[in-house]
Design a binder for these strands. Structure first.
Lengths: 146, 146
DNA sequence: GCTAAATACATTGTATGCAATTTAATTGTG
DNA sequence: CACAATTAAATTGCATACAATGTATTTAGC
């Protein structure tokens, strides 16, 4: 392939990843709007529904987000009443995020979201597994490079 | 799988797509910075290197971006001198974007970017093709739903 | 040819996302 | 213990994204 051909959109792997990400997030919008959540807030809630409580640093590592994104995001979610933020007594540098009762109750309203979204993605189980595996391979390699 | 298990991050397909998209774009940063381009500006340039000239509407369809994103983006790129914007004489509603000489010259500085990025992605040819195919299948299905 | 509907952009407001820097707290070392 | 280096968040500044709305232009239907 010629070098200039590599610069075409149709020969790029990143572009469909980028486009797919945004299109899926757009498709989430009607469901998440009912829960008063954005997509980023939704994935924070997923962690908290699983863990109840987590430090900002570890949350950032799980979600690949830094404090510049998380700090204002978590403050907004605290204002909505879904979580609480508190400095650790052991290490005052760390902030611990924990699920509130209102946040816990929200999980029940969210249980149908994955099923609704699963239909929109149009992949069967083996395709989904293949896609999942390839994406995590890319993610893992990008981390190593750092 | 239990409904609440589907709400876990590790059972989500969207999350690795979203994370991968952002991590790859981050990896582009050092290369694109040298060209004075952001990732979004880079994919606009890729279209223009291929087409020289395109309407905003078609550009938005290619990139899955709307005028709310494109209008300010294209104005910034015009200010940098990489492209020109002009109302169509035939249909005053339409804006035509065209590559300038400076924009054309930029392509030569960008030829190495895809190769540099290819290394970072860590997939062989067949894996890349599989990932590509799966992503476009998802994208196509999401468009049908609309 | 008049006007309602459609179209193409532009604008507004809100929410990320991230690089770069700053601040406060803790740790490692001599 | 003093203090330089490290670490965890917070802050700042800039650049998207996108829903919702507004505006100018064109098209369709009569």
């Amino acid at each position: 392939m010629r070098d200039t051909d590599r610069l075409k959109l149709e020969n790029q792997l990143c572009f469909p990843i980028y486009a797919c990400s945004r299109e899926i997030i757009k498709a989430y919008h009607p469901y998440l709007q009912k829960l008063n959540l954005t997509y980023t807030q939704y994935i924070v809630m997923m962690v908290l529904w699983d863990r109840s409580s987590i430090g900002v640093k570890e949350l950032g590592e799980l979600l690949y987000l830094d404090s510049g994104t998380l700090t204002p995001l978590l403050k907004k979610m605290e204002a909505k009443g879904y979580l609480q933020r508190a400095r650790s007594a052991v290490d005052e540098r760390c902030v611990l995020v924990s699920l509130t009762e209102a946040g816990r109750l929200l999980q029940q309203e969210a249980v149908d979201v994955p099923k609704c979204m699963g239909c929109k993605v149009a992949l069967n189980e083996s395709e989904a597994a293949a896609l999942y595996g390839l994406l995590y391979k890319v993610l893992a390699h990008l981390q190593e490079e750092k």
